[in-house]
Design a protein around this nucleic acid. Structure first.
Lengths: 200, 200
DNA sequence: TAATGACTACAATCGTATTTTGGTCATATG
DNA sequence: CATATGACCAAAATACGATTGTAGTCATTA
């Protein structure tokens, strides 16, 4: 019922449409009929790709995090110093999320309220996977003698915890503040955290 | 309509009762009649101390933060190293809040939902005041040559941001996890932040 | 002068009729 | 034969009028 047979592009088209509908109407007022119409397929076809409306919304969020993970992964493997990697990764994890939801600020709270229990589960996974990526860079930096730390995974989790307050979750984007302000705050936190890691 | 003439103790008694009622019934089901009865005064007398039901709930939260601020202030003036002060203050700002709401975990979300807009305003103030206290310790540590940082106030704000994700706000306590887990996480974050500050 | 509780306006709740919509599946289509 | 579809249905959401409950006021009281 998931994909495999079905072309990825349709699934993606549905999620693209979801993003637009969410921005325009919010979660409750977005109907599957309208969504299908927006994509240009029949209602039943939507259910060839997703199990339920909730699953659509959650997959939409999944996709945002998936894209973030791709970016983090690329940064982690790039050819710069571990310090630069870490700084970019910290900022990206905040700003990519911000940019992904900025255009439907108003309806974000409603969406989150509707899927909170399930999302909570997934967030744990998201964070754990992100922590793992951070850990790999920490390990690299430690081996290179530029970072000083004990357990990479535990430190990775701490980096996640220390930047989580800046993510749009229960706090919608407008509650968090202007983009420039968030970026500034993220920079300051990242700076502090990096100083704590660097072997001076 | 606020206090001045009225004895502090009655106001406090109302807030004490509010804490109990909130734990037992939650915000909506807590009626002013019941609250007054719990305190042992007439309903009208409640309005001698507070302007509205919302104001009561907000004052209740204010009091929690007020107590925290008292504690932070005491720590900031105590006779230990700036490093120890800062670590204790970071942990206290998380754990005192956690302990203050732990006993009405279930109804916390509801309470927060009811007063969110007003609380948002106040939170800004809370955080700014806390940042100021942290800044004073940072300044002290800088002068003593144990901390290395640029702007104390800006760094203070970063410390607040970096620990905010661990506070019970939109995330209720049970969403955050067990007390021991939070404490562990807070410790790890505090450790990292302190390393970033210490001149090694 | 400070405290009270009867009082009121309005908000929340309820019961019911009506509409909308998430999800299914027999049928159509390529 | 495999995949897409939209008519269909049960269940949920909404509308609405009647009823109840409660926040906030204020004339009276002690």
């Amino acid at each position: 019922m998931k994909d495999a047979t079905a072309p990825i592009s349709t699934r993606d088209a549905i999620l693209d449409a979801t993003d637009r509908m969410l921005a325009r109407y919010g979660y409750k007022k977005m109907t599957i009929d309208d969504l299908a119409k927006e994509v240009g397929i029949g209602k039943g076809s939507v259910y060839l790709h997703f199990e339920s409306k909730q699953e659509i919304a959650l997959s939409h969020i999944d996709r945002i995090v998936e894209r973030l993970k791709t970016s983090l992964h690329a940064t982690a493997r790039s050819k710069v110093t571990p310090e630069k990697k870490l700084r970019k990764m910290l900022i990206d994890r905040v700003m990519m999320r911000f940019d992904s939801v900025q255009h439907y600020t108003q309806s974000l709270n409603e969406l989150l309220a509707q899927v909170r229990p399930q999302l909570l589960e997934r967030r744990k996974r998201y964070f754990e996977e992100e922590a793992r990526m951070f850990a790999s860079v920490l390990t690299e930096g430690k081996a290179a003698g530029v970072f000083k730390l004990k357990d990479p995974m535990e430190t990775g989790r701490a980096l996640i915890d220390a930047t989580n307050a800046l993510l749009p979750y229960s706090l919608s984007a407008w509650e968090l503040g202007e983009r420039a302000e968030i970026e500034k705050k993220t920079n300051n936190v990242a700076e502090l955290l990096l100083n704590g890691l660097l072997k001076r």
